[in-house]
């Protein structure tokens, strides 16, 4: 995603600079929602205000919306065929391998100390063995993050005043 944005938006159209795009990715990663969509909204807003933000968001969403709608229609039609069922039987195993790989990579990157391990384990257990909403886990873990670094947050707040 990042290389395509750089080529199209920075080099070809010159709508934005490389630094802005990198900032934008940082913001996209720490706000809720899909990063590609966040980036599109951000650049659109920078160029043409709220309308620009909304129009570029529609632009980035539309291709997947159309593609997936068409694929789902086919999928509903053909999912009863034996061949399709066998193919998806194999594919599901492939997907589990993909998820495992992603989790493994994220774990290595993110879980760096005991607090992180505790949060990881709690999130895993609550989600795998209870019906707790993931929303509760997200909010609770955000609070843990804030409490843990309360001192440095306070220092920054005083610095601003």
């Amino acid at each position: 995603m990042l290389p395509i944005i750089q080529k199209e938006i920075v080099e070809k159209k010159k709508w934005s600079t490389n630094e802005e795009i990198i900032d934008c990715f940082a913001i996209g990663q720490c706000t809720p929602g899909v990063i590609a969509v966040n980036t599109a909204t951000f650049i659109g807003y920078k160029k043409k205000g709220v309308t620009g933000g909304i129009v570029s968001t529609i632009g980035v969403v539309l291709p997947s919306l159309i593609t997936i709608t068409i694929i789902t229609m086919f999928f509903k039609q053909f999912q009863h065929y034996k061949v399709v069922q066998y193919a998806f039987g194999g594919i599901r195993v492939g997907v589990i391998a993909l998820i495992s790989n992603t989790v493994f990579k994220m774990f290595k990157q993110v879980v760096v100390n005991w607090v992180c391990i505790a949060i990881f384990v709690a999130a895993f257990i609550f989600t795998a063995f209870t019906d707790f909403s993931p929303i509760i886990m997200i909010v609770a873990s955000a609070l843990v993050g804030i409490l843990r670094r309360w001192d440095s947050i306070k220092v920054e707040g005083e610095g601003v005043e």
Partner: peptide, 10 residues
């Protein structure tokens, strides 16, 4: 971040 990793792992 670690919570999201745990959620996806689950």
């Amino acid at each position: 971040r670690p919570a999201v990793t745990g959620l996806i792992a689950a």
